[in-house]
């Protein structure tokens, strides 16, 4: 995305031709439609599409929401590469020599209409890997008194995977997902590893069994295209190799989860006082010693009047 930063400062060509792949679910017809768009500096492909929709053709259907690379709704194949339309500068994909931008719906997802794809099975696969913390002590988990212990190093082990925005670009780039609808796909498998590797999670055996399915981790052949297109550098390709290796070693009796963290014990009052810095002065009328002897209680209901 450094490229995006640089191209945000660059001027795109004055006008670009946006060539949109369209699909009508009623007639089953697919066709390309070209629109001229006047650009401005900093215009994204999503902006260009919205301009077409506002000024030229209201019938174009697409999905977007946040316009800032957070919601993961606007994945499209732009000039042949799966990208987030809102994170793609027009100046990045169009030039004076070639002012044409092709926009297609994400591959490997059923197309509902035009650029709008159906994510139902994508989210079902995500759900299959149980993407939440599982503890044996559900009582404690439902009524927590403290948090589970996790060091910054332990957090880093799962941190990049936790940044996934479920945009589906990885699935769209995957050559296995391209022919196999059953394959869990890079997004779900990366999330499977994200929870398996989390020190706070206790269901690693259960999850490895989910990965050990015909449609699981062993169907990956490490083309790493998922990692190449992921806008958040989640690195699903790397996560799947760690998952597969853990799974195979586990089946050989050579791997088990090394550490599972416990809730932090509740903090006991130590009675220690933090001394005021010498230059600190109290407001007139405040008697610190008196307040220590008798803590001030503020009645919230009186504040409202």
């Amino acid at each position: 995305m450094a490229q995006a930063l640089k191209s945000a400062a660059k001027y795109p060509p004055k006008t670009v031709r946006v060539k949109i792949k369209r699909y009508s679910p009623e007639t089953g017809r697919e066709w390309w439609q070209v629109y001229e768009v006047e650009t401005y500096r900093g215009m994204t492909v999503l902006d260009a599409l919205l301009q077409v929709k506002e000024k030229r053709d209201h019938t174009i259907v697409m999905r977007y929401s946040c316009r800032m690379g957070v919601c993961g709704s606007c994945g499209m194949v732009i000039n042949g590469t799966p990208r987030l339309a809102c994170q793609t500068q027009v100046s990045m994909v169009a030039s004076e020599e070639n002012p044409e931008i092709t926009v297609e719906p994400l591959k490997n997802f059923p197309v509902v209409r035009d650029l709008l794809t159906d994510f139902t099975s994508f989210f079902e696969k995500h759900r299959k890997v149980k993407p939440y913390l599982i503890r044996r002590d559900t009582q404690e988990q439902e009524n927590p008194k403290t948090e589970y212990r996790m060091t910054p190093e332990e957090l880093l082990e799962i941190y990049p995977y936790s940044l996934c925005i479920s945009c589906g670009l990885c699935v769209s780039a995957c050559p296995v997902s391209a022919s196999d609808e059953g394959f869990l796909g890079p997004q779900a498998l990366a999330q499977l590893w994200r929870y398996t590797a989390d020190v706070r999670d206790e269901a690693w055996r259960e999850r490895l069994e989910i990965a050990d399915d015909e449609n699981g981790a062993l169907k990956c052949h490490f083309a790493a295209s998922c990692s190449a297109v992921c806008p958040k550098a989640v690195d699903p390709g790397g996560a799947i190799q760690m998952l597969r290796s853990a799974l195979l070693k586990y089946k050989l009796g050579l791997w088990k989860k090394r550490k599972i963290s416990e809730p932090v014990p509740p903090l006991e009052p130590t009675g220690e006082k933090v001394p005021l810095p010498p230059e600190a002065q109290t407001l007139p009328g405040v008697d610190l010693e008196a307040m220590e002897r008798e803590p001030v209680v503020i009645d919230a209901s009186k504040l409202l009047d």
Binding site: E209, D212, D213, E214, G216, L218, L247, L248, K251, L252
Partner: peptide, 13 residues
């Protein structure tokens, strides 16, 4: 669910 790895492990061995 029979583990798929049982046969796929042999691919690597």
């Amino acid at each position: 669910m029979v583990g798929y790895s049982r046969i796929q492990l042999w691919q690597y061995i």
